[in-house]
C-alpha cells in the first residue's frame, strides 16, 4: 500500500514562476488552478489546460522536488537563490522599465539616499569615540579631531555630508514638485517625502548640540525656546527635548539618542516605504512627453 506523502512545509513549496524566471524543476505541472495548488505559469508548461486532476499531485511533486534537489547551484548567487528564491524578485527590480525620457533630474532621490548612507557610516565611526556627558562631550570631540587617525576627516565628512544631504533633499523635492510627480497615483509618496524632509532637518538640529561648543549650545537653547513658543503643545515638546525645564546633562544624552537612534531609524524605515512605492508605481515620465502610441491605440479601439 502506498501512503500519500505528507504535505510539505510552507517554506519548501515551490514558488509560482514568473515570466522569465528560471524553472525551479523540470517544469511539469503539479496541478491545475483553482485547487489552491501552486501553478506554474511559465510559457511552455502544460499548466492551465485543466486536464490533469490534482489527485495525481503528490507523485508528480515528488519527481519535481527530486529534480530541484539535484540541480546544482552555480556560485554564491545560485546558492542564495536556492534557499531564498529571490532571484525573480531581484530580476523584476533590475529589469523593470523606467519610462522614456528619464534624465539626470531623476538621480536626485537616490543621491539623497546615498548621502544618508554616508552619514550613517561616518556617524557610526564618530559614535565609537563620542561621549554624551556634558563634561566629556567637548573633550571627546577634540580627541576625535586632534588625535585620531583621519578623525578630523571623518568628522568633516559627517558635518558636510549633512549640508549635502539637505541640499539634495530640497533639490529632489523641487524636481518632484515641478514635474507634478506628487499627483495621482503618487500622493502617498509625496506625503512620506515631506515627513522625511522634516526628519532630515531634525537630524541637523539635534546633531548641532552634540559637539557641545558655544555656538551649537546656544543655538540649541534658542531652537528649543522657539519650540516652546508654539501654542498648546510647544511647552511640552520643549520639556521633552530638554528632559525637564532646564538644560542639564539629561538634555545632551537625550539629544544624542534622538540623533543617533530614533530619527535615523525612522528615516531608514520611511526610505524603505518610499522606495517600495517607487518600485511599485514606477517613476514618472518627464511631464512634457506625450506617448506617441497613445493616439494610435485609441484609434484602433474605435
Amino acid at each position: 500500500m502506498k501512503l500519500p506523502t505528507p504535505p510539505l512545509p510552507r517554506a519548501l513549496k515551490p514558488k509560482p514562476g514568473r515570466p522569465g524566471s528560471r524553472p525551479p524543476g523540470n517544469g511539469d505541472a503539479n496541478g491545475t488552478g483553482g485547487n489552491g495548488k501552486v501553478r506554474d505559469l511559465r510559457p511552455g508548461t502544460p499548466d492551465g489546460n485543466g486536464e490533469r486532476p490534482s489527485k495525481g499531485g503528490p507523485r508528480v511533486d515528488r519527481e519535481r522536488f527530486k529534480e530541484q534537489a539535484l540541480e546544482v547551484p552555480i556560485g554564491v548567487a545560485g546558492w542564495l537563490d536556492e534557499r531564498s528564491g529571490m532571484s525573480p524578485f531581484v530580476r523584476g527590480l533590475a529589469y523593470r522599465k523606467v519610462p522614456r525620457g528619464t534624465n539626470w533630474w531623476y538621480t536626485l532621490g537616490s543621491a539623497t539616499m546615498f548621502a544618508f548612507v554616508a552619514q550613517a557610516v561616518t556617524g557610526v565611526f564618530l559614535a565609537m569615540y563620542y561621549n554624551p556627558a556634558p563634561s566629556e562631550a567637548y573633550e571627546s570631540i577634540t580627541h576625535i579631531t586632534n588625535d585620531l587617525f583621519l578623525g578630523e576627516f571623518v568628522r568633516g565628512m559627517h558635518k558636510w555630508g549633512s549640508t549635502v544631504m539637505v541640499i539634495l533633499i530640497f533639490l529632489h523635492m523641487a524636481r518632484t514638485f515641478f514635474f507634478g510627480a506628487y499627483k495621482y497615483p503618487r500622493e502617498l509618496n509625496w506625503v512620506i517625502g515631506v515627513v522625511l524632509l522634516v526628519l532630515t532637518l531634525a537630524m541637523g538640529l539635534s546633531g548641532y548640540l552634540l559637539p557641545f561648543d558655544q555656538r551649537g549650545f546656544w543655538a540649541t537653547v534658542v531652537a528649543v525656546n522657539i519650540n516652546a513658543s508654539a501654542p498648546v503643545m510647544g511647552p511640552y515638546i520643549a520639556d521633552f527635548l530638554r528632559g525637564g525645564s532646564e538644560f542639564t546633562a539629561t538634555t545632551l544624552s537625550r539629544f544624542y539618542s534622538i540623533h543617533m537612534l530614533i530619527i535615523p531609524g525612522l528615516i531608514a524605515a520611511l526610505i524603505g516605504a518610499h522606495l517600495y512605492l517607487v518600485a511599485k508605481l514606477g517613476t514618472t515620465a518627464p511631464p512634457w512627453l506625450k506617448a506617441e502610441k497613445a493616439k494610435a491605440l485609441n484609434q484602433e479601439e474605435l
Partner: peptide, 8 residues
C-alpha cells in the same frame, strides 16, 4: 511611456 523606456 514606460513600455517605450529602457530597463532600470
Amino acid at each position: 511611456l514606460k513600455g517605450e523606456g529602457k530597463s532600470f
